[in-house]
Design a protein around this nucleic acid. Structure first.
Lengths: 184, 184
DNA sequence: CACAAGTTTCAATAATTATTGAAACTTGTG
DNA sequence: CACAAGTTTCAATAATTATTGAAACTTGTG
């Protein structure tokens, strides 16, 4: 029976969580967020798991904790290595490879910006440039309008490029300082 | 037979495109880009089509030009209306609804930031706050570490929030000026 | 208020994307 | 160089997400 002097509106919130439960929730949250980001769930969950793991984990550990197949674990961990979000940590005398996450969040942000910029923004800019350079007939009605839209988008892409490149190179204190000063 | 005095390394690039062909390429490009952005292809293509259309288009036009079903066209155009990227344009004396795109790219950017921030960043911040507030046992080994990671992510999310909110509210000239001055 | 013109909904289906798991491969060691 | 321990690849399959299209609904008009 609930104690009226100590009301518990949400019973689930009342029971203290073990650290393991809290970590599991974090992994779930990170995986769910990734869905709307074009990053696949397993990759996000593995990243989250490594972020909150004190020690380095092996492929076996990853398979067991995320309940995924060996193949999936292998490919996903390699992808995280490619992004620079995870490092190999070889234990002396052991054949097996272990993995640790980059835990500096500014560094994590940089890795993500770098990869996504390369894959998406840079690719888009190339296509836009190519499209804008195609020969067309300037006397056709609507030609100017179409090229104005194209130009506007290119300008926008350039601005985004400049800003993202800046963030990538910036020092932590400098960045936070500048951005917050700017917008608050 | 190619004229050697006027070499054409890429034959495809040599033939002047009609405006219609160029538009089709733009629609294709925009749709492809959206794939890595968590926005569905039809929505991006429809947006592109309306962006480069001089006149307002009806649902019938959208169906015909994008080769999609009535249901798909109806749902997608409604979604674009929800995002604020497209407006209804009623023609006097006509029952049928017509649609035009918002063509100011800064305004378009604002709409997209607003929607994605609401759906993704705000949702994530809520979940993080909730998770950080859950009762746990601070004496458990690793408790501090876990909460440090959580705190770092929250800080990052807050910074992103501040910046995006700033961009959303900013005036065009002010924004471009500030950002470019900052990073170049 | 019956009808026509148009729009929306949603269960069924198609298309896409992620995952499995077994086979092939790699690498270090006696 | 044979073997063991581990990793990677990739065709088959499962899971997810987008699309269709027919039925239900809405709205303006005689």
């Amino acid at each position: 029976m609930p104690d009226p002097t100590n009301p518990t509106p949400d019973p689930a919130a009342a029971a203290p969580l073990t650290l393991e439960q809290a970590k599991a929730q974090f992994i779930h949250l990170w995986g769910a967020t990734s869905a709307s980001w074009g990053i696949n769930r397993t990759m996000a969950q593995m990243h989250a798991l490594l972020l909150v793991s004190a020690e380095a984990l092996s492929t076996e550990d990853l398979m067991a904790q995320l309940q995924i197949s060996r193949g999936n674990a292998s490919m996903t961990v390699r992808e995280l290595l490619d992004w620079g979000l995870v490092y190999k940590a070889l234990k002396p005398g052991e054949r097996r490879e272990y993995f640790v996450a980059e835990k500096d969040m500014l560094q994590v942000t940089r890795c993500i910006i770098r990869e996504r910029k390369r894959r998406e923004l840079d690719a888009m800019k190339r296509s836009l440039d190519q499209l804008a350079a195609l020969p067309g007939d300037p006397t056709e009605p609507g030609y100017r309008e179409f090229h104005r839209v194209l130009g506007d988008i290119q300008q926008l892409a350039d601005s985004a490029d400049t800003v993202l490149t800046g963030v990538m190179k910036a020092e932590k204190t400098w960045l936070i300082d500048k951005l917050l000063r700017m917008f608050t």
